[in-house]
Design a protein around this nucleic acid. Structure first.
Lengths: 193, 193
DNA sequence: CGTCTATTTGAATGTACTCAAAAGCGGTGG
DNA sequence: CCACCGCTTTTGAGTACATTCAAATAGACG
């Protein structure tokens, strides 16, 4: 059942009538992504809300020296998207691609806007989602401002133990904000506490 | 009229009936803060939503070496608060204090929860607020990961021209993530483009 | 004024980066 | 099944951006 994860996710915060659930579900379109396939590139307008069903995606920016900086990984059960571009419907600066073959669900912004009107409790759902994400980004910013690289790495391991096991080191380096070379040296030199 | 700024702020995203506005407004309590006065300290539970009417607040963390890292400034018309603590009603790790004598409005979480029930369009308002803040924090994280200090400084000047004029350099340094000494050297050495 | 805090300046240091090259690892095709 | 290719990881030497510590100067406030 493709929508199982999604409905579970929703049910954590709001309750839907049978009709509401039906309208909600009929707004989704499913899509497969191959490993390395782009879902979004710099300059694209984000037209869809995205929920990950299987696989693993990442969202990142590329700076003017060509270096990637990962904002988020999205394993199954996670939402992902360039929120600024989605809100403004202007071209964004982020990339999203698949680290593994993945299955995702897409809902167009226009449909979501209708959904807000027909089922206002989704305002609540996405408010809670955004507030939680906000807290997470605030914490990550604090960590980047106040912790040395090794502790940012340890934090990452603590927060995302299942990701650490399946991610290439290079991707983790890009998330915590160091070069792959430096992460390698860090890990060989020091034992994590 | 103390609520003018607040109502303007709300009106950007939702429309209220006279009754709704009345119920909304009666949930607020106003408070004055003296320069350097704390509104929140590490270990406190954030029990109120906070809207700034006058003056200037800041929210920051203090790391284990005693250094402050500023997450946000809040001039008049801005919202401020430790969102993680507010959501979870658990003790937080952030500080909020006033950089100038300030006037703020407070609404208790319990009242806000009632407000969501009585006037569901506030779910929408705070969803939009949280989504915008989320976009802002994502961008700031990218900047911290990819830009050298001088460009982060220039970005700050571009984004908050009115703050630059009234903030001590030390506070700006703490926001962009460098020591005051280094910011001083940067500014004397280089011309901003 | 005098005190407290912010800013500037300098020298020494450190964390993390750059560039380069070698080694490891996984997948694919012959 | 082995050989090769592409990509990741490791290692090393040199470098750079930013910090630390210290001291002098400048500003703001009572």
């Amino acid at each position: 059942m493709e929508y199982g994860l999604l409905l579970q996710n929703i049910a954590k915060h709001i309750r839907l009538s049978a009709d509401e659930e039906k309208y909600f579900l009929s707004g989704w379109q499913s899509k497969k992504l191959r490993r390395k396939q782009f879902l979004l590139q710099e300059g694209d307008v984000t037209k869809n809300a995205v929920f990950v069903v299987s696989g693993l995606l990442r969202m990142y920016s590329i700076d003017k020296n060509g270096f990637e900086h990962i904002l988020q990984f999205a394993p199954p059960g996670w939402w992902i998207g360039d929120i600024k571009s989605f809100i403004s419907q202007q071209p964004g600066s982020l990339y999203i691609d698949a680290l593994e073959d993945s299955g995702i669900l897409l809902m167009e912004k226009t449909y979501l806007d209708q959904l807000y009107k027909k089922v206002p409790s989704f305002e609540r759902f996405f408010r809670i989602l955004a507030e939680n994400a906000l807290g997470t980004y605030q914490q990550r910013l604090i960590d980047n401002l106040s912790l040395p690289a090794i502790e940012r790495y340890n934090n990452f391991c603590r927060l995302y133990p299942s990701l650490i096991e399946c991610l290439p080191q290079k991707q983790v380096a890009s998330y915590i904000g160091v070069t792959p070379e430096f992460l390698s040296k860090m890990l060989s030199g020091k034992q994590t506490s």
